[in-house]
Amino acid sequence: MQNIAVVTGASSGIGAATARRLATEGFHVVAAARRADRLAALVEKIGPAATAVECDVTSDQSVAALAAAVGELGGPVTLLVNNAGGAIGLDPVESGSTADWQWMYDVNVLGTLRMTQALLPALVASGAGTIVTVGSTAAFTAYEGGGGYTAAKHAQTALVGTLRLELSGKPVRVVEVDPGMVRTDEFSLKRFGGDQARADAIYDGVREPLVADDIADIIAYAATRPHHVNLDRIVVRPIAQAAQHKVHREK
């Protein structure tokens, strides 16, 4: 049996691109997300090197069912990609929705926690496990209107750093990939409640924002280095984005 890679948030964007890429690297990919129809279409395109498992990372029961399904495949679990996440809105702190903040914390932070706890025994047992968590440049830079998302991503990176310390001496690498401006079909659209114009405005004038395949390429690179090589944190931005607040836009 091939080495197994589990990718959350695999129904679109970075997750789907990562699932496709890891299959070409020789992994059997377990593509996990809530939208079963999209997972089925993805796995059909990938072929026999992929398995779809419906999973909601905000549910303890759903994550436990995913772990059980992965165990039934019988192969060594050597890679977990914690990619499920997201942002809602750009409200200031003074008027931010506690429900939105709670959702962002649950999916970005507790989702990472649930998945890591569920699959860590198998990753350790493989003798050569890797956990890649997809964070954000929001994990270390605050910006106006981003309080809920930056708070969640700061917490996620604290979780990852703590995990790396706690796993010292065990055969599991802990990698964090922090993208800046990545244009995908859904991230900004979901953030703005389906408002396509507001979503598109984020990228106005940016000639070449990153795309999902760029991040998938970096995840695959980190995951396929010799196992003694740990790329702790990879920060990646498009050349147009020098910093969170410095983006070159062509008129």
Rank of each mutant, 00 (worst) to 15 (best):
G205C: 09
V177L: 06
R225N: 02
E44M: 12
G135W: 04
V229T: 13
A222F: 06
I88N: 07
A152R: 05
A31T: 00
G148F: 01
P226H: 11
V172L: 12
A139D: 01
G85C: 09
A40G: 08
H245A: 14
L42V: 04
A49N: 14
A128S: 15
G89T: 02
V174R: 01
L163Y: 09
L119V: 07
I202Q: 06
L90S: 07
G96R: 11
T112L: 10
T24C: 07
M115L: 11
Q196R: 15
K190G: 12
V211R: 15
I219W: 10
I131S: 01
R38L: 09
L159C: 05
A151V: 07
G85T: 05
A50N: 03
K246C: 11
L119Y: 14
V211D: 00
V177K: 00
G146W: 05
E25R: 14
V77K: 04
V81K: 02
D200W: 14
S95M: 15
A40H: 05
I131Q: 00
N83G: 10
Y105V: 14
A36Q: 15
V175R: 00
L66H: 03
V7K: 01
D185R: 15
Q61S: 11
G146A: 07
A31I: 00
Y221V: 07
A5V: 08
Y143E: 09
A19S: 14
G111W: 00
V93D: 12
A41C: 06
G96K: 13
Y149T: 11
V182W: 03
R34G: 00
I131Y: 06
Q61I: 02
A138F: 06
I46G: 08
G205D: 11
A142T: 09
V174C: 11
G89E: 13
S59G: 04
E25L: 12
F192M: 08
M1P: 13
G161L: 09
L66P: 09
H28D: 05
R173W: 13
A32E: 02
T78S: 09
A240Y: 08
D195P: 05
S97I: 09
Q102R: 15
V160F: 04
P48F: 14
I234L: 13
A68V: 09
A142S: 07
G169E: 02
A220H: 02
R233Y: 02
A243T: 02
R35S: 05
E176H: 14
D213Y: 05
A41Q: 12
D204E: 13
V53Q: 05
E44R: 15
A17M: 03
T224Q: 10
D37S: 04
F140W: 11
K190N: 15
A223G: 13
A201H: 10
V229L: 14
L79A: 06
D200C: 08
V236M: 10
E94A: 15
V43Y: 01
L110M: 15
V206S: 02
A65M: 06
V29N: 04
T18N: 02
G111F: 03
Q244A: 12
I46Q: 12
Q61K: 10
P226F: 06
A142D: 07
A50R: 03
A152C: 09
L79W: 09
P226I: 09
A33W: 06
T162W: 06
R164L: 10
A23M: 11
Y203P: 12
S11I: 00
G169A: 14
S97L: 08
A5G: 04
T224W: 03
A142F: 09
E144V: 08
